[in-house]
Write a protein that binds this DNA or RNA. Structure first.
Lengths: 105, 105
DNA sequence: CTGCTTTATGCCTTGACGGTTATATAACCG
DNA sequence: CGGTTATATAACCGTCAAGGCATAAAGCAG
């Protein structure tokens, strides 16, 4: 019942591997277990964290639980990143400025 | 000597506060200490982590060390996020499709 | 109902991390 | 030089989370 935010959840290396896997196609738990070469409980626990953070959603199909990504937190992350974009555009602008300045004899 | 990656470094709540503060203007350590209302050693340690992850750079000015953001990791984060963008564009497309379908009697 | 498969939970150990106080290092000022 | 400011490091502690194994729970097959 922790409720950690999406970014913190995604940051963990193993969970990022899970997220990267789910990006291309939805997966069952055993799918992920074989991909990550980790114990099933470990994977289930990571999935629980991701679920409670709203990063993934699960649906039941027969005995399997199919996990897929939830777009929302990625949009949020994108929104958070937005104001940082001018960071490197400004950087490039400064660089260009510098080059122009240098070419003037 | 850990060498954690940028995303993991940024994910930590306190460090995200530092990064958010540095986004608008560069800061000295004491600046950050007063902002975060935390002990100076704690701030210095977080700055060390951010430094080793390449998130920030430091320069010396008198006795102060001025910290500023390094654009690179944010570009990397943006690049990592890029393939996820189609996640919500697809999502929107599907939604629109669904609405169109529903309007046909 | 009895297995069989798939997933979730409980318990435990271990290692890492965030925070503190105390101290070292470094750069300025007089 | 001595003193003061600014930052980094050391030593320590409490907490927490990630991983393991064992076990429960849930859904299907026969």
């Amino acid at each position: 019942m922790a409720g950690m935010d999406a970014l913190t959840a995604i940051a963990e290396p193993t969970r990022r591997r899970i997220v990267d896997a789910l990006r291309t196609r939805e997966c069952s738990v055993t799918d992920l277990v074989t991909m990550l070469r980790m114990s099933q409980p470990a994977v289930s626990k990571h999935l629980r964290v991701l679920r409670e953070a709203g990063v993934v959603t699960a649906s039941t199909r027969a005995q399997q639980r199919i996990y897929r990504l939830n777009p929302a937190p990625f949009r949020e992350l994108d929104a958070w990143l937005a104001p940082y974009r001018q960071l490197w555009t400004r950087h490039l602008a400064a660089l260009e400025e510098h080059l122009n300045e240098r070419d003037k004899p």
